[in-house]
Nucleic acid binder design. Sequence first.
DNA 1: CGGTCGAACTAACCTAGATCAACGCCCGCC
DNA 2: GGCGGGCGTTGATCTAGGTTAGTTCGACCG
Lengths: 244, 244
Amino acid sequence: MSSSPTITPLIHKLARRDALSDEERSVLAGLLGPERHVPAGGLLVEPGDRPGFSTFLVSGFCARYSLTVDGGRQLTEVNVPGDFVDLHSLLMRQMDHGVVALGDCVIAPAAHADLRRLTESHPHLARLLWLETVVDGAIHRQWLVTMGQQNAASRLAHLVCELYRRLESAGLARDYRFSIPMTQVDLGDVLGLTPVHVNRVLMDLRQQGLLEWRAGLVTIPDWDSLVSLGQFDPTYLRLQSDVV
Amino acid sequence: MSSSPTITPLIHKLARRDALSDEERSVLAGLLGPERHVPAGGLLVEPGDRPGFSTFLVSGFCARYSLTVDGGRQLTEVNVPGDFVDLHSLLMRQMDHGVVALGDCVIAPAAHADLRRLTESHPHLARLLWLETVVDGAIHRQWLVTMGQQNAASRLAHLVCELYRRLESAGLARDYRFSIPMTQVDLGDVLGLTPVHVNRVLMDLRQQGLLEWRAGLVTIPDWDSLVSLGQFDPTYLRLQSDVV
DNA sequence: CGGTCGAACTAACCTAGATCAACGCCCGCC
DNA sequence: GGCGGGCGTTGATCTAGGTTAGTTCGACCG
């Protein structure tokens, strides 16, 4: 069980928030189990599940979703490589939502028993993981603000800005372009819009030269304008150090 | 510094989720500092603050809010007595949002230094507090679902159901009635609606015999219908035991 | 090589909710 | 005892986004 390269994104991510000792790094290295592949559209977790482990996203993209009784689907967060998609299931045993693979994903489990043991033996690491779940909450709050106060174009702009910064920070985006396997239907489920209207907004932003989103490839020709349209302020993502 | 009655709602709340030892109870009892009063409309925390303590709501109601550049205000959670309103500030130092008193409030601080010490010495308690922040995230997710998928009337119905169950669980509501100092403007800021439309929806539900909301006093004549209108399922609130 | 399926795109029409503008009520204040 | 400011209420009008019902195009497949 030597440390696999799987874990390095997690170490990088936590170390960006606060310094990690060598010992802490080696504890993290022992946390993840064997990798597993999930095809596009597959479910990593289903609502109501009581998993015995939390799932770490090694590569690919997935999203948390909830279904409504009348057939609606709302995506409540998009996860990028380096994220724990359901770390909170350590505390809240039964999943209140599912997680769907947007494209092909590689995931690795971290057993709850090990995580619980970690909270006993390594409180500083535990606080860093706690912070991960707290940042999820901050992302949710920000999405609530955009849903409640901004129109479709602003919401879309905000989402693209958030994804770009998070991917950039994970080393998966640069030069204002990135690729992500989300269809216009998926976007509608994130933004609370119909696919038809997503398309209209997308065409509109394209014509204004603010955004290209074609075949999973996103290009941002005018970052500043997109930021101001989406009223995007990245503070809530806590991508810089924030000692805990 | 003997234990004040201030702390008992917190002990009750945590004990509802998992058994607490006498020693854990006494640690909690030593956590809260002296009470402070905040008048209606006052700010418990402002965006950008870096508080050295987390604020516990002893009595009254408050709400987390974010402001947008064009003058909008979005309330992202309503807090009821027994809630920590900014427990996450222990991890995420700088506040990404503010907290406003909806009516007169009594609050008590828990020093971050003490909380951090608690995570070292009492991991089980730490996990219970972690769960508190995780439940906040679940509430945010549920609100995202209602914002994205439900119309004004359903959103309002859902909010009232959530408030009733949370207040009931805190011993502050029974017989399908409770009082809460929220104006129609506040409701609009929660639901992402204009006060005008909140009023129309309220009048409508009143005429249908589903809901009375007058002068801060809420009455639910037909709980089942309100639940089904709001598609309310209380699981996400974790009001029952959920061993951690 | 035609057939099917998923995804992007388009157009015509419709409604939930916003906007704007009053008006009444109550309560605290000068 | 008048008066100004929240708060609730109402009506007329407007618009962002939903609904319905397509077309197009490329990828895969038998």
